[in-house]
Design a protein around this nucleic acid. Structure first.
Length: 589
RNA sequence: GGUUGCAUAGCUCAGUUGGAUAGAGCACCUGCCUUCUAAGCAGGCGGUCCCAGGUUCGAAUCCUGGUGCAAUCACCA
């Protein structure tokens, strides 16, 4: 449509002023003026020396005369507002309503293939609010990339080895008395997490004790027997000590069982899991190759580094002097492995912004190693979720637990639903499912609607809203439309061609038309927030229509048909958009 | 100290090719359920777009400098 107008505007300028216009600037017409599309005249003044209002009038007249879809126009200052006729809108709408996945681009053989990494938990503690943001973002971005026409694989790398795991293991061995998830009734990840906290408590006590006996704080921290034991355990693990490895396997399995439940409740999934215990040695070979290619250099003590001073960064270590791998080594190896496994040409890492530097370096290294795909790596960096009391720390138990949070939200949804009492006829199971849909909808929307880069301050005391710009508000609109559709017991399948649009109807249609563009934008910017805010705008327009225009109450048959179609299309779009965010929509609420 | 990100109404946030009088929600105040679900709609109140310069016909948006907050700059992951 803009392309069509652009062409005619260029023609207009050519015939009026003998000027070849390079570009035409459009924007949506502001509500307070009449019109559907606005042409900004100002930029043209560079090429045509004249009064903007006069030029606008001239172009407007030309368009009305020569272009069918332009019905009228008005000029305000340098803005040419065009009124597009109803026939055009109705034609567009026909395409939207008949397309169950309007706005989605199907991926093909030639589509870019992208892997999205998210979640990537440690196996020594349960998931908390920070992971929730990570999971929601990663999942949503994966879905959005898919909808924008990419082939997408979802993955996580499970951080299942290292000193932190040994801490939980050791504490369980020492103080656990053989407790298991079965004997305690605790979720496995919770049980293991408790021992991580336990370790920290005992460790701190030992440090304090040592300090009492004259040690400095730094010495005490290094010499505490518990820490020494944990380190020893890590060495035993690396050496393949049978007892340690079997304990490790047992406790990790507990954690995986726990995670599975959390993921399921959260509604996220993965196509492939990578385990750090498998990949942590992967990068070493590559480092060797890099040494030969002089991408890396070796210091006298044997450690291997890369010099990034030319790029304005520092030197960075990629292999320890004892030959063992660091975080970076592993990430280099894992990236290469993934490209081999899936023939992908891009990777999205959903990781908090505290690791901005790490990923900057990682991407640079891969580029220097000469991998073409290194140009398509993206760090989806998001702000931390902080509590009013400050940062969340698992060790100190000051976290908002993911499972408890979801439960809390579901409970709140239940309370509100029961107060409103609109669910007569629903079975207990149906009700519970609905509470979950609404509670999680509120939580997910709350987190996803803000720009990923911004940090979120989460106050558990003030519950997440269920009114206004929230998930439930949008779900409610969907449910209301479903209610209308249940009552619309007549055939509304025919195409509406000859019809005069109500202004409210037109606004809703304009909003619907934006969806494909919003998906593409959300994909390029890796921002689910754009989808969330789009659904809100759409719902606002629809509700205004709903409250001001009767859908089923009109006597005019064609009005009824068209309005039901419009409502249905809005519902469909909402469902699809929320699907991208991993949020479900209810039939009633 | 260097680097990166953020700063918009009392609070939470939109505002992305630079455009018209900077928009929503929450909170507070009005009105609207004998008609399709009031988790809604219509309206009111509320602004030094962190500050100072610059570019431009035009700046919340771009540039420079500063202030504040956060993260980061490990042979931890």
């Amino acid at each position: 449509m803009q392309a069509l107008l652009e062409q005619h505007i260029k023609e207009a300028l050519n015939s009026l002023h003998q000027v070849n216009l390079e570009n035409v600037e459009f924007q949506a017409t502001r509500k307070e003026f009449e019109g559907d599309v606005t042409v900004v005249i100002f930029p043209m003044l560079r090429q045509v020396k004249t009064n903007p209002v006069a030029l606008g009038e001239a172009i407007g007249s030309y368009l009305v005369e020569n272009v069918d879809v332009v019905e009228r126009f008005n000029v305000v200052k340098g803005f040419l507002n065009l009124v597009i006729n109803d026939t055009f809108f109705l034609q567009q709408f026909k395409e939207i309503k008949d397309d169950a996945h309007f706005g989605f681009v199907k991926s093909t053989e030639e589509s870019p293939s992208i892997m999205v990494e998210y979640s990537s938990p440690n196996t020594n503690k349960p998931l908390h609010l920070g992971h929730v943001r990570n999971n929601l973002l990663g999942y949503a971005v994966a879905e959005i990339l898919k909808a924008a026409g990419n082939t997408v694989f979802k993955t996580q790398i499970i951080n299942d080895r290292g000193i932190h795991i040994c801490k939980s293991m050791l504490a369980w061995q020492k103080y656990g008395n053989g407790e298991t998830p079965q004997t305690t009734g605790l979720k496995g990840d919770k049980l293991v997490g408790n021992y991580y906290v336990k370790f920290d408590q005992e460790y701190k006590a030992q440090v304090a004790e040592l300090q009492k006996h004259g040690k400095t704080e730094d010495d005490a921290k290094v010499e505490a027997p518990l820490l020494l034991e944990a380190k020893k355990m890590l060495l035993q693990w690396e050496a393949g000590d049978e007892e340690v490895v079997s304990l490790w396997k047992k406790m990790n399995q507990w954690v995986y069982d726990g995670f599975e439940i959390t993921y399921k409740n959260l509604g996220v999934d993965f196509d492939k899991n990578y385990y750090e215990s498998d990949t942590y040695l992967l990068g070493k070979e590559v480092v060797q190759e890099g040494l030969e290619k002089d991408v890396f250099f070796k210091k006298e003590d044997g450690s291997v580094w890369i010099d990034l001073t030319e790029e304005g960064l520092d030197e960075k270590i990629v292999l320890r002097s004892d030959g063992t791998a660091v975080y970076m080594t592993q990430d280099i190896g894992t990236a290469i492995q993934r490209v081999k496994d899936y023939a992908i040409n891009g990777l999205v890492y959903t990781v908090g912004n505290e690791q901005d530097y790490h990923f900057k370096v990682l991407f640079l290294i891969l580029k220097k190693l000469g991998y073409e795909w290194a140009n398509h790596l993206y760090h989806l960096s998001y702000g931390m979720v902080d509590l009013p009391s400050g940062k969340m720390k698992s060790r100190e138990g000051t976290v908002v637990d993911a499972d408890e949070l979801m439960q809390e939200m579901t409970k709140t949804a239940q309370t509100i639903s029961e107060d409103l009492g609109k669910l007569e006829g629903y079975t207990q199971d149906e009700k519970e499912e609905l509470y979950e849909t609404i509670g999680l909808g509120a939580l997910k929307y709350y987190i996803l609607k803000v720009d990923p880069r911004k940090r979120i301050l989460f106050n558990p005391e003030e519950s997440v809203d269920f009114q206004g710009n929230t998930g439930p508000f949008i779900q409610y609109t969907y449910a209301r439309i479903q209610s209308i559709l249940r009552k619309a017991n007549f055939d509304y399948g025919q195409d509406v061609v000859d019809y005069t649009l109500d202004p409210k109807e037109k606004e809703v249609m304009k909003q619907l038309q934006l969806f494909p563009e919003v998906i593409q934008q959300a994909a390029t910017q890796h921002s689910p927030a754009l989808i969330a805010n789009y659904t809100y705008d759409l719902v606002k327009e629809f509700n205004s229509f709903y409250q001001n225009v009767s859908i089923l109450g009109t006597d005019v048959e064609i009005e009824k048909v068209f309005r039901v179609q419009l409502a249905k299309t809005v519902a469909q779009t909402l469902k699809n958009a929320f699907g991208l965010l991993g949020i479900q929509v209810p039939e009633r609420m």
